[in-house]
Design a binder for these strands. Structure first.
Lengths: 224, 224
DNA sequence: AGATGATTGTATCATTTTGAAAGAAATCTA
DNA sequence: TAGATTTCTTTCAAAATGATACAATCATCT
């Protein structure tokens, strides 16, 4: 198994390389984006550990380049912050997993192994929050193993809420997010009420807890 | 029996060569595409074990070159991932079998032996999903032993759906897949409706379950 | 060339989704 | 508590999407 670690902190990188090598992985290290590009173009890796904060740019660039080549399978994104929005963006861009610093090396190993297992068992990209499981690849939502059928807007809304969990999203922000392009042109944002209500209803109908909280006068929040 | 192993991981390669040699096969090793090309042009092999991820390119290149020479018989593709789409592509390109890493050497041996048996007994490449059985060599589709007669596009569509089972494929993606090259130039994708409908009809007429699900506003999915 | 069948485009119909509107309910403010 | 504001809920028409039927084109075979 060949692993590429893209990480600028030398000390951490060395630790990881050492640890994974001990576990019989063939682990290489790239310290920045330029370096990583060279290695990626030259070799095929079974797994790429990608730190997002790099000295010469945003690791997301690499991820997007890989996406164009349809080679995101096997990427684990490492980020300094537990940011649901970034996490979702990463996974939607095709990353296989997301890991927050600081982490135990054992945890990293577990993820890598899980990834390899998943690769062999035809896995997907999963977002989990409470009893909800969203599969970004299959575009399905499940609540304790039962499938929840959502419309496109409801699905986007749910992702947006969960992606900003515990943060309040204003009606206006949600409206813009859901309407794609002509955002500014929107005057009446009231249709958000309908989508919120319909989504709540479908969630409750499947026995899901009521995590969509209304903050009067401000907006909505996905509250765990 | 002469076998060529195309594999970049030296340690694994050595194990395989050693194991197969013990079983009285004459096994040679090529560590990359360039190396493999040389050997293939020079000798005739009864069986080629081809790892897809190679340092100097995609193993699929080799497979396609072999196909042009009509020498794919005896190729077993080895891949790091159990990827239905790649598996189908490999088998369609003429490979005889597909093996996912990691595997036991005994398993490999069994495959090689099965391959040799097949060579003598004129076997086929089978893809199975639910009660459907597709023979990629004969290009036939059967539902519980009854033959399903499909047009070329219907056959391609079915393979594409099954190759991405449980994943949603957009109308656009399907259209591009079915029309080959001029992908982007396509404006009207509506002909996909017709093929979907016709395929569904033929499947149902043979008593096959309705696995082609419509995801409104998103696409279609082969759902088991 | 003519016949046959496959493929694609067009037209029409059916269904689902969406957003707007409006009154009811809840919440806030003074 | 009254009145203002915000949110909820329902209803409905318009828009988007998909299914179906059919016609036109294209490819293939004899």
């Amino acid at each position: 198994m060949k692993i590429l670690l893209i990480e600028d902190e030398a000390e951490l990188a060395e630790d990881i390389v050492h640890y994974l090598s001990d576990q019989d992985f063939l682990c290489e290290w790239a310290k920045d984006i330029g370096n990583a590009r060279g290695k990626i173009s030259q070799y095929d890796y079974d797994c790429i550990l990608l730190d997002l904060s790099l000295p010469d740019g945003d690791g997301m660039e690499i991820l997007n380049e890989l996406k164009k080549l349809d080679k995101t399978e096997g990427v684990i994104v490492i980020s300094a912050k537990e940011n649901m929005a970034v996490k979702i963006e990463s996974l939607r861009s095709g990353a296989d997993d997301y890991l927050t610093k600081p982490f135990h090396l054992a945890e990293l190993l577990a993820r890598v192994q899980a990834l390899i297992r998943r690769k062999n068992f035809n896995g997907s990209n999963l977002i989990r929050s409470a009893e909800i499981e969203i599969d970004l690849l299959k575009k399905t939502v499940a609540i304790s193993d039962r499938t929840l059928i959502l419309t496109k807007k409801e699905y986007e809304l749910l992702l947006y809420l969960i992606g900003n969990q515990n943060r309040v999203l204003s009606k206006g922000a949600i409206a813009e997010h859901l309407s794609g392009d002509q955002a500014d042109l929107l005057i009446n944002h009231d249709f958000v009420y309908a989508h919120i209500k319909n989504l709540k209803r479908k969630l409750i109908d499947l026995g899901c807890g009521d995590y969509i909280k209304t903050i009067y006068g401000i907006g909505y929040r996905w509250q765990l």
